[in-house]
Amino acid sequence: MIYAYAKLTVENPDALAAYREQAGPALARHGGKVEQATADTTALDGTPDLPDVAALLSFPDKDAALGWINDPELKDVHDLRRSTGASDIVLLG
Rank of each mutant, 00 (worst) to 15 (best):
M1N: 06
I2A: 00
I2N: 01
Y3H: 12
A4P: 09
Y5T: 11
A6H: 11
A6M: 14
L8G: 00
L8V: 09
T9C: 03
T9E: 06
V10F: 12
E11C: 06
E11P: 06
P13N: 03
P13I: 03
P13M: 02
P13C: 02
D14P: 08
D14L: 12
A17I: 10
A17L: 10
A17F: 10
A18E: 15
A18V: 11
A18Y: 10
A18R: 15
Y19F: 04
Y19D: 05
Q22Y: 03
Q22A: 11
Q22H: 06
Q22L: 11
A23I: 07
A23S: 14
A23F: 01
G24S: 03
P25N: 03
P25Y: 04
P25C: 01
A26M: 11
A28N: 15
G32F: 02
G32M: 00
V34K: 04
V34I: 13
E35K: 06
E35T: 08
Q36S: 07
Q36C: 06
A37T: 14
A37Y: 09
T38L: 12
A39E: 12
D40V: 15
D40Q: 15
D40F: 15
T41W: 11
T41S: 12
T41H: 05
T42Y: 12
A43T: 13
L44F: 14
L44E: 09
D45S: 10
G46D: 03
G46M: 04
D49C: 02
D49H: 08
D49K: 11
L50T: 14
L50F: 09
L50W: 08
D52V: 00
D52Y: 03
V53E: 11
V53I: 15
V53N: 07
V53Y: 09
V53P: 05
A54V: 05
A54N: 05
A55G: 11
A55C: 12
A55W: 04
L56K: 01
L56G: 01
L56Q: 03
L56I: 03
L57H: 05
S58A: 04
S58T: 04
F59I: 00
F59Y: 11
K62N: 08
K62H: 09
D63F: 04
D63I: 05
D63A: 14
D63R: 13
A65R: 00
L66M: 14
L66E: 14
L66T: 11
L66G: 05
L66P: 07
L66C: 06
W68H: 08
W68N: 07
I69M: 05
I69A: 06
N70I: 02
N70D: 05
E73C: 03
E73W: 01
L74V: 08
K75I: 10
K75T: 13
V77I: 06
V77H: 02
H78R: 10
H78N: 02
D79H: 10
D79N: 14
D79F: 06
D79V: 09
D79L: 13
D79Q: 12
L80H: 05
R81F: 07
R81Q: 10
R81K: 13
R82V: 15
S83D: 07
T84Y: 01
T84V: 14
G85E: 03
G85R: 08
G85H: 03
A86G: 06
A86R: 13
S87I: 04
S87V: 07
I89R: 13
V90A: 04
L91K: 07
L91H: 02
L91W: 06
L92Q: 09
L92I: 12
L92P: 08
G93Q: 07
